[in-house]
């Protein structure tokens, strides 16, 4: 099965999978930009990367807030988060 079929087969989990993927990418983006800036010597490059980093931080915050609002992410309640994680894991394990 292809990626999209897998996603479609997840029913109401689809949104959550996409949002989580977005959150993880946004997080990786912030870290990647920080690493790149720490290796930068040219002021012009630093300026561009710094501007992008600020946008990346902003995007991460937006998606984080969205997920918290939707109940996909429980930063304030790790125990609840673990239950959500376990459910998501079950869904993945059921993929044939």
């Amino acid at each position: 099965m292809g990626l999209l079929q897998n996603l479609a087969g997840m029913g109401d989990m689809t949104e959550q999978v996409i949002a989580t993927d977005f959150l993880i990418s946004a997080k990786a983006g912030v870290r990647n930009y920080a690493v790149a800036i720490s290796e930068t010597a040219t002021p012009e490059v630093r300026e561009v990367l710094h501007r992008h980093l600020d946008v990346a931080i902003d995007t991460h915050e937006k998606i984080f807030n969205y997920m918290t609002k939707k109940g996909y992410y429980h930063a304030n309640n790790p125990q609840e988060q673990l239950i959500v994680d376990a459910k998501a894991a079950d869904t993945v394990l059921d993929i044939q």
């Binding site: 689809t14 990647n32 790149a36 290796e39």
Partner: peptide, 26 residues
């Protein structure tokens, strides 16, 4: 710096492609 930029562009390319595909899916 160039190698770092290469890493970032590769990452961004994937992210942007994914975001564009997913935007239509959700």
């Amino acid at each position: 710096e160039t190698f770092e930029l290469h890493e970032i562009v590769s990452f961004k390319n994937i992210c942007a492609t994914k975001a564009s595909a997913m935007a239509g899916l959700v």
